[in-house]
Design a protein around this nucleic acid. Structure first.
Length: 671
DNA sequence: GTTAGGG
DNA sequence: CCCTAAC
């Protein structure tokens, strides 16, 4: 069957659906699902791996051999012959070990994300010999959420300058982001809290460059041995190599990470490398990368063991996972869980730092119109989160959760009190010129403002951007009263923060771009002021739940980009209407056409989204109103949904019945 | 890159 | 909304 090209549906008119595609049912149907089998195998693998790890740890100085050998060992260790899965095991282990790291003595972990886990595992085995420290590596962006920055700076007279600088391919990159960190020795009876700063020219603390995780591997390095090192920037080069000589396990993320680790890549270089222009749409890049990351996480972390089977089904999104098997001592698992819980929290707490569209509401739209006339342009920015420096915390295994919280809190406070300033990144480019007006910088009320990032940077970072050490030897357990970050409430909450309600006020969709929805106006700050003035509204808000801090896992890249689930954006009635209309016209099964037809330029609605939405619409329409949830869809629309669905299903059925007949299909269903 | 369908 | 097989 000949597939029509997309150009066929370019015309908005009453195109005749000449040749509908193969019926939906014939495509994309997964005939067999081996998931259960795989899960079973993976489960076994997890068990075996755990055994292996435990054994490995006991055997000192395992030569720097390939993991294949270990895998063979493992085979011997494990008595039960699981024929089907053994090849898989070998394969996975081998692959990971060989491609991902240099294995030093006792090296088990293959990838950074495993590093911490391995470390913990080793700790657990050492536990028998004496007290050890659980290493909690909280490297990443701590997010301060839902801030509102109301710029009180009237845009200068430079209205005419409202040209957004071409930032080109920076995309998701950040300057000064090639960061790394050093995990201190685990079994030393010291609790170091070390924070290291990116070595870029800009001391952006959010660091942890995105590319680091492009393949799911951050540059973190944690050895299963007693010492560990992290490839730092150029000044750490020596350290790296020497560390290798010392037989430490070194993890370097390949590809981009290699460059990062082999020298402090110039941030600008980083930024330009290999990224698609912003134009492509963040969500697309993010989607790709996220997919990659998740895949990598799943495949590589834990040697391909699906995370759901590990450690009680802990999600591994962006997190390091360990090969916690049933044989790992309970203490270990406990500790691990503690870590993971934190990390998961972080995940949930994380919102798009980048996705910071100006909010649209009825009032704001009015204001906008008004301002257009009065030359009083304002930009209202909603900061959902701030990126805070990565943290490294060593916590005794027997520390309480409370003390852990306090510790983290302490660190955060140290950072906060240490003097922070705010950095502004537009499309990944650090805007350093504080004297620029927003408009000159391209931050205009009428522009799409979803490419702005705010970062927290150390004041002192200017001089020594490479590292900032936060109170070492911090007595974790004596970390006394700390002002809970969560107490710092948002002074002015965004009324529309509740969700996408504002979108509902948007009339019919069609050609309306999302950017329209976000155009807003507000009082703004003076042009000559430092941007940090706007940071007063940094609002740490406790994530839902127990109020733990938003700490993003080590491997987590910038939250706005990679590995992050998209924010949920319920379809508005207007969108639904547009969708229904398009489907009536175009039919089901041609979602790209539908997208182009009705949701072109609406970046956050992919054709998959539309398809999904249609699916739910059909479902919604077929259930009783009482069972429906969420924004009620007018019955009229639902009726049209059912009609269209029935019609197009019928058409597809017809097509299947006589595949050779080229029965011209009506262009629109007679709903 | 699209589509379908399960989760 | 995510994931991924199938195309």
């Amino acid at each position: 069957m000949v597939m029509r090209k997309r150009s066929d549906y370019g015309s908005r008119g009453r195109r005749v659906a000449t040749m509908p595609r193969v019926p939906n049912s014939a495509r994309g149907k997964r005939t067999t699902r081996r998931k259960k089998d795989e899960m079973c195998a993976f489960d076994l693998l997890a068990t075996v791996a755990g055994t292996l790890l435990a054994d490995q740890d006991n055997s000192a100085n395992v030569p720097n051999t390939s993991c294949a050998a270990k895998a063979k060992n493992e085979k011997a260790v494990k008595e039960e012959p699981h024929d089907e899965i053994l090849p898989l095991k070998n394969m996975v282990m081998e692959k990971d070990c060989c491609s991902g790291c240099v294995v030093g003595s006792g090296g088990i972990c293959s990838f950074p994300r495993q590093a911490n886990n391995c470390l913990a595992e080793n700790s657990s085995t050492r536990n028998e010999a004496g007290p050890i420290l659980e290493s909690l590596t909280v490297k990443s962006n701590m997010l301060v959420r839902d801030s509102l920055v109301s710029c009180t700076r009237p845009c200068e007279t430079s209205r005419g300058l409202g040209i957004i600088p071409e930032f080109g391919a920076h995309g998701i990159c950040h300057p000064g982001s090639s960061s790394s960190a050093e995990a201190e020795q685990v079994h030393q009876a010291e609790s170091n809290v070390v924070r290291r700063q990116a070595d870029g020219h800009a001391p952006a603390l959010h660091s942890l460059f995105d590319s680091v995780d492009l393949d799911g591997r951050p540059p973190a390095l944690v050895s299963s041995d007693s010492s560990s090192c992290v490839p730092f920037c150029s000044h750490d080069k020596e350290h790296q190599t020497s560390s290798l000589c010392r037989g430490e396990v070194q993890y370097t993320a390949d590809k981009d990470d290699d460059e990062n680790s082999s020298g402090c890549t110039d941030p600008s270089t980083i930024g330009d490398k290999g990224y698609k222009p912003q134009y492509l749409g963040n969500h697309r890049i993010r989607k790709l990368l996220a997919s990659k990351v998740r895949k990598a996480a799943r495949n590589k972390i834990c040697g391909g063991i699906p995370s759901k089977r590990i450690c009680g089904g802990m999600s591994n999104k962006g997190s390091k996972l360990n090969l916690c098997s049933k044989k790992i001592p309970a203490t270990c698992q406990k500790g691990q869980r503690m870590i993971f819980k934190k990390k998961r929290l972080a995940h949930h707490a994380t919102s798009f730092a980048k996705e910071m569209p100006t909010e649209a509401s009825g009032t704001s739209m009015e204001g906008r119109n008004k301002s257009c006339g009065s030359d009083d342009y304002h930009v209202k920015l909603r900061i959902k989160s701030f990126n805070i420096p990565e943290l490294f915390i060593n916590v005794p295994e027997n520390a309480t959760i409370g003390s852990l919280k306090r510790t983290v809190m302490d660190v955060v406070n140290s950072i906060m009190q240490g003097g922070l300033r705010v950095g502004v990144l537009l499309q990944g480019k650090d805007i350093q010129d504080d004297n620029k007006t927003l408009r000159q910088a391209g931050i205009c009320h009428d522009k799409k403002l979803n490419n702005i990032d705010f970062t927290l940077e150390c004041e002192s970072g200017q001089d020594s951007p490479s590292r900032v050490v936060i109170p070492e030897q911090m007595d974790l357990l004596s970390a006394d009263v700390v002002e809970p970050l969560a107490r710092m409430k948002c002074e002015e909450r965004f009324p529309e923060t509740g969700g996408d309600d504002n979108q509902q006020r948007i009339p019919p969709y069609r050609s309306r771009s999302l950017s329209d929805l976000y155009s807003v106006v507000h009082p703004v700050e003076m042009a000559s002021q430092d941007t940090s003035a706007s940071s007063q509204a940094i609002v740490p808000v406790a994530p839902s739940g127990d109020g733990a801090l938003a700490i993003v896992p080590l491997c987590k890249p910038r939250p706005s980009e990679i590995g992050q689930r998209r924010t949920r954006r319920p379809f508005t009635v207007g969108e639904v209407e547009a969708l229904v209309e398009a489907v009536e016209l175009i039919g089901t099964g041609r979602w790209r056409a539908v997208k182009i037809h009705a949701f072109d330029h609406v970046d956050h609605r992919t054709y998959v989204d539309l398809k999904d939405k249609w699916k739910t619409l059909v479902h919604t329409a077929s259930i009783s109103p009482q069972q429906r949830r969420g924004e009620p869809v007018p019955q009229e629309l639902l009726d049209r949904v059912l009609a269209a669905q029935a019609y197009w299903s019928q058409q597809q059925a017809k097509l299947q019945d006589k595949p050779h007949g080229k029965a011209a299909l009506p262009e629109i269903c007679p709903a």
